[in-house]
Design a protein around this nucleic acid. Structure first.
Lengths: 145, 145
DNA sequence: TTCGATGCAAATAGTTTGCATTCTA
DNA sequence: TAGAATGCAAACTATTTGCATCGAA
């Protein structure tokens, strides 16, 4: 039940030490939105611990990623969002309004199987978002183009 | 048959002027690899015209993109590659060795149709590469992990 | 001659790194 | 107390922008 402790324990198991900054970042990951940029997380951590530096945020995120706790997904043009590994799913991001639609990982399995058969290529589709246009923006786009 | 002239003409039609730099960049796009980073292109252009600035390369690429001549695809972690619109296809990039596998756009149509039906989301799959592992790296990865 | 294109330098966004210091285990 | 973690500043990558000048039509 205590997700925070479980995650910290997992870090400790990997030889890491538990610090205030790490505790705060894990807490930040556990509340609110499931997808947060490094910036979002830094802001949240700063609320309680203003002295935690941005570079530390990145280093902790890196440690968490190595420990298999989080993963990051690129949402186009440079910025990445981080989320807990438990929340595995594909991401669809709207190029126009930026809304993120989640869909089960299974949706891509058919394509993945075909690609693997044809090219031997194993798609890791979680690491990138599929871009496009959400329902609303697709409608607008169609009428204005 | 003269692709270079055709492209330049297309630029001119949009109100643009034809300059040495533009001519050189279009030439660079037409030879060799079908996918090049802004850096690759800058290097090629510099070979003949060392004074052309990087920012100019970006501005020309932007103009070409607006004119519908090229498009850029993000290959993960910040860098983008440009290619002529005629060469439309999906990209699979290996996270390990960086090799790019191309596959017909049609391969994703089934997934795209399902997603559009379920979520109203219109995937623009050409704008991003699907990450994963190529046959060779997948084999290595499996045995070493 | 006019307005688009360019060179330059500086700014930007997002992230990473070297190094001396601090703190956990 | 050893070695991991941190703060800080500075570097980095890829790209963009303001501005004065240049050049194509």
């Amino acid at each position: 039940m205590d997700r925070e402790l479980a995650i910290l324990e997992r870090l400790r198991a990997g030889g890491s030490r538990i610090t205030v900054a790490r505790r705060a970042l894990v807490e930040a990951l556990l509340v609110g939105e499931t997808h947060k940029t490094a910036d979002d997380l830094a802001e949240q951590v700063h609320a309680a611990h203003p002295s935690v530096h941005r570079s530390t945020i990145y280093r902790i995120l890196d440690a968490l990623e190595q420990a298999g706790v989080v993963e990051h997904v690129h949402f186009g043009h440079g910025r990445a969002v981080y989320h807990l590994l438990e929340d595995r799913h594909l991401h669809l991001v709207c190029d126009d309004c930026g809304v993120v639609v989640e869909m089960p990982e299974a949706a891509i399995s058919e394509l993945a199987a075909r690609v693997e058969g044809d090219h031997g290529f194993v798609i890791d589709s979680r690491h990138f978002a599929l871009p496009g246009r959400c329902r609303a923006c697709a409608a607008v786009h169609q009428s204005s183009t």
